[in-house]
């Protein structure tokens, strides 16, 4: 039984349709990345899961119960870090943590003290004097001090420094080890990559992509730069190859992961001097989904990634095929300007 199960969820605020048929499924024990541009409806979804907002229509189940009707019972089994943490200004951080923990049904004191130490948080200061990052830490410590089944985290690390980000990641791994489920809304892609088994990407209140990171990677193309003895011909008839162009005697192209093997076989015949291949980065993946119109993004899920090339991320990843060191120049470098004007290449095969 999934821990979170949302189907065709709709929520409107007056004329604004914040959620427009959203789907989300989170299985027990997984860390699920919940991604989407600002205003796409992440916080709204989370508030519905907490029984704070009432859904207009659609199904929502949390731990097998209705989040609106069974809110109080459910809240004993979950912990929440709000996106914008505000606390009682005249309470100290320590008091706020204890209060939230107690209201939730109790917290692990040893764990609490350890977390305070690890997050380097002074619990004797009044909440009104905390910076955004420190308020965030208070909410994080309060949440992770409670041994619960589900952690709902709404952009929990947006105010944290890299050191604290590492501590946070440790904590997520720890609760995951203990068998808990985590829903993590985040914009920090490195964090998502490091922690999440599966991700769901939403746009304008709709789910546009959901799956493991590997699955999502397969939907985008690998960027390849090759230097050959003789000019490469015949690329336009190869299946799965897009965006071919030449700059300074080097050929730049993009290939769908499934067709990489055929491409390499073809290139061998032209005398390869150097070859760089860059796997699609998470940034490219997200830029494609964040930047496009939703319809185009949905359509391109099974076709070419028209904007992937323009993201131009440095090719440092461990690609499926590495050429000699001579081709160490970032693969995206030459393709910046050229591919930006490209139209979708659906008919290029």
């Amino acid at each position: 039984m999934p821990v979170i199960s949302i189907g065709n969820l709709v929520k409107t605020f007056g004329a604004i349709r914040a959620l427009d048929g959203l789907d989300l499924h989170v299985e027990r024990g997984e860390v699920h990345g919940f991604l989407g541009p600002n205003g796409s409806g992440k916080s709204t979804t989370i508030r519905i899961l907490l029984g704070l907002l009432r859904r207009d229509s659609g199904d929502a189940q949390v731990l097998g119960a209705d989040p609106w009707r069974d809110a109080v019972r459910l809240h004993r089994r979950l912990a929440y870090v709000p996106g914008d943490v505000n606390l009682w200004p005249n309470l100290t951080g320590g008091e706020a943590i204890d209060l939230l923990g107690q209201l939730r049904g109790g917290l692990d004191r040893r764990r609490r003290d350890e977390l305070l130490h690890r997050f380097d948080l002074d619990p004797t200061r009044r909440c009104r004097t905390y910076s955004k990052g420190n308020r965030q830490k208070v909410a994080i410590v309060a949440a992770f001090s409670s041994p619960v089944e589900l952690y709902v985290l709404d952009e929990p690390t947006s105010g944290l420094d890299p050191l604290m980000e590492a501590v946070f990641q440790d904590e997520v791994r720890r609760v995951k080890q203990a068998g808990a489920t985590v829903l993590l809304s985040s914009h920090v892609l490195a964090e998502v990559e490091a922690l999440c088994n599966r991700v769901s990407i939403i746009r304008e209140g709709r789910t546009v992509e959901s799956g493991t990171l590997t699955e999502l990677r397969h939907l985008t193309r690998t960027a390849v730069t090759v230097e050959t003895a003789r000019p490469v011909t015949g690329l336009d008839v190869l299946p799965g190859v897009h965006d071919v162009h030449e700059v300074d005697g080097r050929t730049h192209l993009e290939v769908e992961p499934a067709h990489l093997d055929e491409l390499l076989g073809h290139l061998i015949g032209f005398g390869v001097h150097a070859l760089t291949s860059t796997p699609p980065t998470l940034e490219q993946l997200f830029l494609r989904h964040y930047g496009d119109a939703p319809a185009a993004a949905a359509a391109s899920a099974d076709g070419p990634a028209d904007r992937a090339g323009s993201a131009g991320a440095p090719g440092t990843g461990a690609g499926p095929a590495h050429g000699p060191a001579a081709g160490a120049a970032p693969a995206g470098e030459g393709s910046h300007a050229d591919t930006q004007a490209d139209v979708p290449q659906a008919g290029a095969r």
């Binding site: 009682w88 005249n90 309470l91 100290t92 320590g94 008091e95 706020a96 943590i97 204890d98 209060l99 107690q102 209201l103 619990p123 004797t124 200061r125 009044r126 009104r128 004097t129």
Partner: peptide, 26 residues
């Protein structure tokens, strides 16, 4: 300089009633 306060919540604070008293008493 703002004053410091207790590092832990007193048992009497840790309920809606305790919180209400705390926020209202001033």
């Amino acid at each position: 300089a703002p004053r410091r306060g207790p590092a832990t919540g007193a048992p009497l604070l840790l309920s809606p009633t305790g919180l209400a008293w705390r926020t209202q008493r001033g």
